[in-house]
């Protein structure tokens, strides 16, 4: 397989079920370096499940995930991965945490980054907040921001460890159209200018069709092995 060297994420015949209910069957896919990949499919198709498998949060029944050419169970450089979960709706709005505390959280937990000085951590946090245009809110409580702003903070948190691969799960749910447009511009910029590989779940990808160069389609019924790639067309 000659295109292997640039693959940052690969799923190999993934099957997964919740308590015996099959959600994914024999799913194979790959995402190349600097790709903008959309994971699409109807509600309940298994998009979030697939993302969680890629992140090691769920173990597949069969098959394997490869991250940066390492089998996921051997993979250790989690700083390279950012994750924005599909959770803006269940965020506890009363949670007593400032924007700065939220965004800097990964800096204190990653093996590589936790030894940075206080100042270095602060700089990385600042840079991340700046990237999403939220610098002036650093001391605000997370619950006092609008849904769109909170989503930006979650992106900033995912960006703080300078990831090369960013997973987003329906990041624009509950956000108005204008904010959504700005938000897509931001993601597009991260992809094009900063070279971050994007894997984004969306139930409706008409809005982002022009930015995306790879589509991972999970078909109805929750079981799929369909993948098409717009650019290199190497569908098996």
């Amino acid at each position: 397989m000659k295109y292997m060297e640039n693959i940052v994420l690969r799923g190999e015949k993934i099957s997964f079920s919740y308590d015996g209910v099959k959600v994914l069957k024999d799913c194979s896919f790959s995402v190349g370096n600097r790709d903008f990949a959309a994971v699409v499919g109807s509600n309940g198709a298994g998009k979030s499940t697939l993302l969680k498998i890629c992140l090691g949060l769920l173990k597949p029944d069969q098959g394997n995930i490869w991250l940066f050419e390492n089998s996921i169970d051997k993979f250790e450089e989690w700083d390279k991965i950012g994750y924005v979960p599909q959770r803006i709706m269940n965020l506890n709005l009363g949670f007593p945490a400032t924007v700065e505390e939220v965004v800097s959280a990964p800096l204190h937990t990653s093996k590589k980054l936790k030894n940075l000085t206080k100042n270095e951590k602060k700089n990385l946090t600042d840079k991340s907040l700046e990237a999403v245009g939220m610098s002036q809110y650093r001391n605000r409580l997370i619950g006092r921001l609008s849904a769109g702003q909170q989503q930006r903070i979650f992106i900033a948190k995912a960006l703080v460890s300078s990831p090369q691969l960013l997973f987003l799960d329906e990041p624009t749910t509950g956000i108005d159209n204008k904010t959504e447009e700005d938000f897509y511009k931001l993601i597009y910029k991260l992809n094009k200018d900063d070279g971050i590989t994007i894997v984004m779940v969306t139930h409706d990808y008409t809005d982002i069709k022009s930015m995306v160069n790879r589509v991972i389609q999970i078909s109805d019924g929750g079981i799929s092995d369909k993948i098409h790639k717009d650019e290199d067309g190497d569908k098996k």
Partner: peptide, 19 residues
């Protein structure tokens, strides 16, 4: 406390960060 905070705020995020 930093790790416990991260888990309380976002358990999956913490797990992905290697906690």
């Amino acid at each position: 406390h930093k790790k416990l905070f991260y888990i309380a705020f976002d358990e999956e995020g913490a797990q992905v960060s290697g906690v």
